[in-house]
């Protein structure tokens, strides 16, 4: 996965509203209007969230007459698997960063000994 894709996924999954939108889309496609309903949020705000999800490749929008419904890009179960994968990747990267911090700590302790 390219770093920019990972960044987009990180952003997409980090936000609870976006996770809730994905949950809603798992039950079928929906318009921005329909997605906005359960949230105390404006349509432009929901639209912004959907754009982030689009950029991460998690959802697509199609044109259907006047409607532009949003749908999960992958079939739902596959999306779930990829969700877990992304969540795990997030922690993997954080713990890889922790390895570097631990190395710094060890070097500092050696120096002060």
């Amino acid at each position: 996965m390219r770093p920019e894709t990972l960044d987009a996924t990180f952003a997409a999954l980090a936000d609870p509203t976006r996770r809730a939108i994905l949950a809603r889309l798992a039950t079928g496609e929906a318009t921005i209007n329909e997605l906005a309903e359960p949230f105390a949020m404006s349509q432009p705000a929901i639209s912004k969230h959907v754009k982030v999800l689009e950029r991460a490749g998690l959802v697509t929008r199609r044109i259907d007459a006047q409607r532009r419904p949003v749908r999960l890009e992958a079939e739902p179960m596959k999306a779930a698997a990829s969700w877990i994968d992304d969540y795990r990747k997030f922690w993997e990267r954080r713990f890889d960063a922790l390895d570097a911090v631990l190395d710094e700590m060890k070097a500092e302790e050696k120096k002060s000994r």
Binding site: A23, A80, A81
Partner: peptide, 23 residues
Amino acid sequence: EAALATGMTDGMQMSYENLDRLV
């Protein structure tokens, strides 16, 4: 299950076994 499967619980009947297999 909701947190992991992005909430697809209703009607999906998705079992952990299914998910494990997919992963």
